[in-house]
Design a protein around this nucleic acid. Sequence first.
DNA 1: GGGCTGCGTTGAAGCGCTTCGACGCTGCTT
DNA 2: AAGCAGCGTCGAAGCGCTTCAACGCAGCCC
Lengths: 341, 341
Amino acid sequence: MTDTTGAVTLAEVARHAGVSASTVSYVLSGKRSISPSTRERVESSIRTLGYHPNARARALASSRSQILALMMPLRTDMYLPVMMEIAVAVATTARSHGHDVLLLTGEEGPAALRRVMASSLADAVILMDVETDDERLPLLRESELPAVLIGLPGSPDRLTCVDLDFEATGALCVEHLAELGHRELAFVGEATAVYERHTGFAERTVRGVQSRARELGVRLLHRPCDGDYAAIADTLGRIFDERPGTTGVVVQNEPAVEPLLSVLRRQGRAVPEDVSVVAIGPEDIAARASVRLTSVAVPAQEMGRRAVELAMSALARQPVPRQELIAPSLTVRASSGPPPG
Amino acid sequence: MTDTTGAVTLAEVARHAGVSASTVSYVLSGKRSISPSTRERVESSIRTLGYHPNARARALASSRSQILALMMPLRTDMYLPVMMEIAVAVATTARSHGHDVLLLTGEEGPAALRRVMASSLADAVILMDVETDDERLPLLRESELPAVLIGLPGSPDRLTCVDLDFEATGALCVEHLAELGHRELAFVGEATAVYERHTGFAERTVRGVQSRARELGVRLLHRPCDGDYAAIADTLGRIFDERPGTTGVVVQNEPAVEPLLSVLRRQGRAVPEDVSVVAIGPEDIAARASVRLTSVAVPAQEMGRRAVELAMSALARQPVPRQELIAPSLTVRASSGPPPG
DNA sequence: GGGCTGCGTTGAAGCGCTTCGACGCTGCTT
DNA sequence: AAGCAGCGTCGAAGCGCTTCAACGCAGCCC
């Protein structure tokens, strides 16, 4: 701690302990057996000198930077808390595997990915907010760098993906309402822009909702919707104008949840007596809404965690499943019940 | 692109261009003059071989990793969008200076900082959500690593800090209402936990609010408040019970803003006819609230940007201001006016 | 026309670590 | 008693880049 540059090197530790540099390295990595006496001597030298391995040198020599890149486009119409929860889960899990997380935001687009891959800054990449036809995918396909997508692109061949099974999620919501006896449902979805961008999860949910509704002979109206109060009021208004018999609503649009409940209240429709509501979104939103919502949770934490675990497996050259779809699970709370009458 | 390891090295470029490795390096860095002919030859070799410098080797040789660590504790009671806005501004600005951002979340606590510093993973650190008596500060003080705090600790000696001048902000809000003629104000603040943790910005705002109120002879009631509807209803109820003559409210608590407006409405108090409201928080929340709010913006972007710029200056061994307090500016919108009567 | 300056280029020495091959030694077998 | 295996340690060669000192050469001055 008395030096000027502030850095004790492995060589100094070796000198202090009276061993060679490689021995110190092997003590640290455990890749060769070391006699207890030497090990102790080295470890004590490390402690008294306050040695910390230099990450840069280590990265160069071992061709492992212990860095995981997380690419998070952060579009304004994506619900931030879920993104953050995933990011935090990624960071935490990465740390538990000895890795740190490099944050790539969306501004640079595919260029950021190209840069990180070409310069071998990171050992692996995790991509969030994957679009159906994502321009980052070709880069990944022609690269050796382990990559995991959170979300499902249109053609996921040769890529590893983790996601909630949104198709099954949509189906599950419809099933639940149908079982309760509802025959006319509305699906209040994400903002129009999300569909226009061909965001996988939104489209897959719609597919699941629609096909199960068809199978079960339930009428369904799908309406994209912005998250603000006015948009919700408008959307709900049109829905009930067009289908006055609607008794069940599935909503996949986090910011819209509270406004939706408030509009229903103002319209004099009681939840769940007049209208049942099933939400798709983070657990806490559903549980803490002004009416406790029956919902299918988006398991943000699990998605982040699994993505990292898959990336680590890939790094270790272990076989990795190509697609890991998490099965949805519906929690019944206070917002769903039999239709009136 | 035909090799197996996927990496063209500088040496290969040099060979291809018929020059020495150092020449290629100087072409890349521009640190020495190079004849136009050689430069062109090298550049064309770089292009045809598809060369990209290896970040790890560069980091080791130049003792610059081009990585900026961003430590973001992410407490649950901090308002996420502001954190994210800062983080994105940090990432963007860092990129414009050729740096990438390493994300450190709070779980590891000061250990993460120690690790990053000791291993020289990053060139500099930016710390968010600084507490009055932050345990990360001693580490920073005894280290050479350039660091910038976003927020102001209790004793900022020898540390570089960027923040909104929250004391002036509080004062400014009170002034505005006092000038309009209000004589009894309430300050609806952050959650109790935020004050208990001695979060600098919250305490400084209170100081500013209180001292200016005193100076101007205005009565003031400060009430911490959680962000949910029930808490707001309760808090406002008590405020008007205790001080029925209250005509102005300053609110520094983002999630509480909408509930607050809604409670006032329900209480039959018109904004701004009966009660004026001034908010402290992000511009978009104020502008898009159900009543367009007079507010002092928390300039998240600017804070992130300045923090990076200061870090870069410090890296370049330029003198760096110790504390950079951003002056508040109040935007008058539809929520403030003269008191009734 | 000899000495200087300064430009363009080079070779070599690192940066701090990992890792491979080799080597001496102990203790066992036959 | 010779041979062999395996353990513990070491030396050296990188990893791919930056950077310093040095050097040849052209052009300048007086």
